[in-house]
Design a protein around this nucleic acid. Structure first.
Lengths: 217, 217
DNA sequence: CTAATGTTCAACGAGTTGATTGAATATCAT
DNA sequence: ATGATATTCAATCAACTCGTTGAACATTAG
């Protein structure tokens, strides 16, 4: 009947959605949204068995969400497009709007936290230079791209490096993006030590698009 | 470790993605994006077996993407949020960007068609009143919401109602949204009969958001 | 009440998914 | 070549998905 089959479109789209339809794959995409990575470091970061990571990555490739490059004996995976992160984030936002369970998680999470800093607000804070931005992601992700002037203190080093943080000024903490709970842990720790902390709930890539100055490798 | 488990978030998000991960469900969402529908009419519109439709709808409900209401002896399904359509469309756009197969389909489809009319352009056309807008969706969808002043000629009636269309002025044809191939079929038919036709590749809901005047039931 | 209608439910089978294991492959260092 | 390293591949199993069928359920009409 039709020149092009409507179903064929939907089959393709469904294949992309299939890439997003497993918690582990979403975790991988979140990490790859920060920097490219080889299989080994993805294994370390997720704590999943190596073969499992490899298989999920191949599923993501089938879905068109990631691409691979060989580099010596390792394979470096990266997102096919920054829009992959954008879609994942949109998926998360929709889930929180439409699924009670997700709404409950988000409520529990943001329960005591005040509203996140917007990109515009961040620009103002950066300009006035009264705030210290703290990037709690792993070293490699910071190296790949970070908010200009941000201090990198990976979460697992945070407790031991509290001395490096200024007492007088407010801190703004960020990590991988809107649904990264690492921020929450950092905030809890810092508040417990008496720091004034706000959060930034967007990814570095996203902030860059919003006009925030970003330093790249 | 964490106050809130990162994985719990991703499991929720994955459940939403799961709703999008089958061609038939995407077809159902596209239809529900136009108007609410009972199971019977969804069965008729998709051509799928009744029980199959019912099961997919329940999967969509589990994913938080649709809601049901009883109305007499029928159950009327509707999208949980207009953002469901927005996410489906974003999924399609990403697929076309990232999956070769989807890119090929889109290329084949738009091969001979000129660029679609933008919302702004449509506003201008409406204002100058030189164009006839043709809505080729089923009657019920037109009744639920349509571009102000549009003429409803469902695709299957188009051939028999060509006489109602003006010969002198250009036509702008639209249907369910960016990935609805019904438009293509209508365009092919109309071009074959010598009409000057352009297309509109956004859904009515989407056009409404963009400021195009829309008539609702 | 009984029948008709619209929808869901339950159960089946073929196919797919995801985790796990161990073997196979490819690249690099020696 | 040889061995070490990084990753994929192949095979297995339990769990799930999808379509199909027919029965079950709820609501309305008569």
């Amino acid at each position: 009947m039709s020149t092009v089959d409507q179903q064929a479109f939907f089959r393709c789209f469904a294949r992309v959605a299939d890439g997003l339809s497993h918690a582990h794959r979403l975790a991988l995409l979140q990490i790859l949204g920060q920097a490219e990575r080889d299989v080994e470091s993805l294994t370390a970061l997720t704590g999943l068995p190596l073969a499992s990571v490899s298989q999920h990555l191949q599923r993501l490739k089938r879905a068109g969400l990631v691409e691979v490059r060989r580099e010596g004996r390792r394979r470096v995976y990266r997102l096919s497009s920054p829009r992959v992160s954008a879609l994942s984030d949109a998926l998360g936002r929709l889930a929180i709007e439409c699924l009670d369970e997700a709404a409950a998680l988000e409520a529990a999470r943001r329960g005591d936290a005040e509203r996140a800093v917007s990109a515009d607000e961040l620009l103002r804070l950066l300009h006035r230079n009264e705030t210290v931005i703290v990037d709690v992601r792993p070293r490699e992700e910071y190296a790949f791209a970070h908010v200009e002037g941000a201090l990198n203190v990976p979460l697992d080093e945070l407790e031991g490096r509290l001395g490096e943080l200024p007492r007088g000024r407010d801190l703004v903490v960020y990590c991988r993006g809107p649904f990264c709970v690492t921020t929450d842990e950092a905030v809890a720790l810092l508040r417990g030590r008496g720091f004034g902390v706000r959060t930034l709930d967007r990814s570095v890539a996203d902030l860059a698009l919003a006009g925030v100055p970003v330093t790249r490798a």
